[in-house]
Design a binder for these strands. Structure first.
Lengths: 239, 239
DNA sequence: CGTCATATTGAGAACACTCAATCGCCGTGG
DNA sequence: CCACGGCGATTGAGTGTTCTCAATATGACG
């Protein structure tokens, strides 16, 4: 699973890394980056791999280099809610806590740059800029969680599905700040349902509605083309 | 409305203040506290007062000294979702952003300790401990928002109302780390409905169910006594 | 080409919503 | 003092959206 441990010298892998630019590593100067790079390992996992277990002490943190990670909360009776999706170059983990209240699972194949708890914690103590980056991401995730609270609490099934597609089309490509017209949904219908607080069948029906209305087209269950963005935005009722 | 501007000397008001202990001011040393104290003003507002307007540049930040603040998101068609409740000694405001995506409104009479944007921003640049406190609160709010996502997406009306009462009984008294058996609901039925993604009528019916089952008693619409905590926890299906 | 997982579609049931009437509380004014 | 009006909450009846259960269809992979 582990592909590479950085050599003692310059962190050459970091040069091409998204986390270096927009992610938390952008807060680090060259020496700190080398220090982190030496102790970090890049690994690639399959879809479905559990990355963080809720309620269990996490051994470390990671940056997402590519792929999509879903954050999941579970009820004792088995119901589950996806409380967030994370994309490259997001930081993965819960600072200041021994264990996370959510579990994280790779939704697609995911490449990670992982490092031990102690390293990051020691570096945040030394580097206010790093703490600031982490803080900024926490606030972004908070804004996003609240957007989803609105969707979960107030929107109808069709509005939920339309909002979900627009959200994905905006976030799926880290290099494109706008909306993507064509993309793959990195989730199964069951996951979409768990994200939107719906059932598989309702999700499927709403996708069929959008397809029959000529707003989107779907091939091979996962690959979506948005044919009419205006109609999709109207259906989503964005705020 | 404005009651007091701190004098130039020692911030005597801070000594009895919750924010000094558990809030963000706990991160400040005496000189910084004096500096902040000099530029902060304490004010008391009525229930219903808008404290932060969504999408408008906020002039400052504040600590909640007492009372309850609701955070609200609005859809263009008028539907609204309450995305959070804040209690003393929480910090109020959105660091790193010109304007907040949510609006804040006093749910009960609220006492605030307010200070200008620039003062806080300058102090966070100087004091990593302050930034860390703000970061920690953001993470707490994120955990809470995700708890609510679970409730909004997966739980039934009766589970939602039971969860809401338990949440309030835990948070209503900043001095008591456990659950309060007796407390006032700081929200109208309409607000509870907007929080839980239900209608007024459904909230009312579920409260009546809990009352008739002998799990709670309600007087004067607002004041709740929990008679059977175990039953309420069972009804809420906490995770 | 067969098998398994995943997705779609349909029919009926259930839960929460809408609309409407009533109740209770409180402050105001006759 | 009591009548009145307004606001908020409760309760009831009927409707509708979403869920549940079941059957079928599609796609992925050996």
């Amino acid at each position: 699973m582990r592909l590479h441990i950085h050599s003692l010298d310059a962190p050459s892998l970091c040069l091409a890394c998204d986390a270096r630019q927009q992610g938390i590593c952008g807060a680090l100067d060259a020496p700190d980056l080398r220090h982190l790079g030496r102790q970090s390992g890049c690994r690639e996992v399959d879809a479905g791999t559990e990355l963080i277990a809720a309620g269990v002490r996490a051994e470390g943190y990671a940056n997402i280099l590519s792929g999509v990670v879903k954050l999941i909360k579970l009820l004792p009776d088995g119901r589950q809610q996806i409380v967030g999706l994370q994309f490259a170059p997001d930081f993965l983990g819960r600072p200041f806590a021994d264990c996370s209240a959510v579990s994280a699972e790779a939704a697609s194949p995911v490449r990670l740059c992982a490092f031990p708890r102690a390293v990051l914690e020691e570096m945040t103590r030394r580097s206010p800029r790093l703490e600031q980056r982490l803080h900024a991401q926490a606030l972004r995730e908070l804004d996003e969680a609240r957007d989803w609270m609105m969707i979960l609490g107030q929107k109808s099934a069709s509005e939920k599905v339309a909002s979900f597609l627009l959200h994905l089309s905006k976030r799926i490509d880290p290099y494109n700040p706008g909306y993507a017209a064509c993309f793959d949904i990195p989730l199964r219908r069951a996951d979409i349902a768990d994200f939107l607080g719906l059932t598989i069948e309702t999700v499927s029906r709403q996708l069929s509605h959008l397809r029959k209305a000529g707003i989107i087209s779907i091939s091979r269950n996962r690959s979506v083309s948005v044919l009419d963005f205006t109609a999709l935005e109207t259906a989503a009722i964005l705020d």
